[in-house]
Design a protein around this nucleic acid. Structure first.
Lengths: 155, 155
DNA sequence: TCATATACTTCGAATTTTGAACTATTCAAG
DNA sequence: CTTGAATAGTTCAAAATTCGAAGTATATGA
């Protein structure tokens, strides 16, 4: 029965298989995060993880593929929780840099470590497969950040 | 600058690299779907893609990692749009089977083909890398559907 | 046949996301 | 140095989405 699903999926194109795997993993990770996080929303959690260094809000909006007002709301929550502060970007005083506080760093370390563990358990991949998957995932991410897929699409 | 990001990411653990890649791809695909779909919500779109064969709503809820009431709402929308019908499962008349109509099949074919294309462009992977990624993604998906990661987590 | 479990639905509340209008700053002409 | 257009982020109310508890119908087992 569940093998039937698996073999059927095997007949789909590699791209669709890849997408379905990505969606399953994404959903699973999101679900699992719920059990772990103290009291951060998903978006707040994502933002903390992304702040490995101070970043402008616009950069985060691009990176997280969302709109500025969502970033504002998310940053507000994290600032109120004492996990980050806003600092003016000296190079452009219209912009803010979001900087993790010490407490924010701690939270980030915790989340990163838990996320790694989650990936391990959710994926069931061994070390070598994980490395292989990570290599491709990094390549994909680089490509996405580089190109916005600007071409007109089918629209 | 963007190379800096890439090299910094390179220092992260493979698991985190994998997760960030997965998130980037997921978000990108979601964003891209917006440009393509006629007038389906994301959830409706996911459901159509998952209905490669008639499925019970409970199965979909498990598969899409959500709650039954969300599945009901999504199915309502698709039924209203004429893309699927509910049929009683002859093996258990409490359950419904969601079956794509002909129009639903057309929509699914379109979405699957567009999604494959999107993956191709978003990922930037060549055929062999795609196959490799797909193999791992399928393995991950199998593992997730098999295990619910029931263990207590850190909670 | 009765009690309990399962499959789905309903519906109102909570959460999240969005978009348009606004403030502050920068940049480029002239 | 002033002006006008563009950019970075904010505000806030509306829209969309998600959830959870209570309800209906069917199944299963004692």
């Amino acid at each position: 029965m569940s093998d039937d699903i698996s073999t059927r999926l095997g007949r789909l194109s590699p791209e669709i298989q890849a997408i379905m795997g990505v969606y399953a993993l994404y959903w699973k990770l999101e679900e699992a995060f719920d059990c772990v996080e103290t009291d951060l929303s998903h978006a707040e959690c994502h933002m903390v993880i992304k702040l490995d260094q101070p970043k402008r809000m616009g950069v985060l909006a691009t990176d997280m593929l969302t709109v500025p007002s969502t970033i504002t709301a998310t940053a507000d929550g994290l600032e109120k929780a004492g996990l980050l502060t806003r600092e003016r970007d000296p190079e452009d005083r219209r912009a803010w840099l979001l900087v993790l506080t010490e407490q924010g760093e701690e939270m980030r370390n915790m989340l990163v470590s838990v996320a790694g563990d989650l990936f391990h358990r959710a994926s069931g991949l061994d070390a070598e497969e994980t490395a292989q998957f990570a290599r491709l995932a990094r390549k994909i991410r680089d490509n996405i950040l580089k190109t916005g897929i600007p071409e007109g699409l089918t629209k």
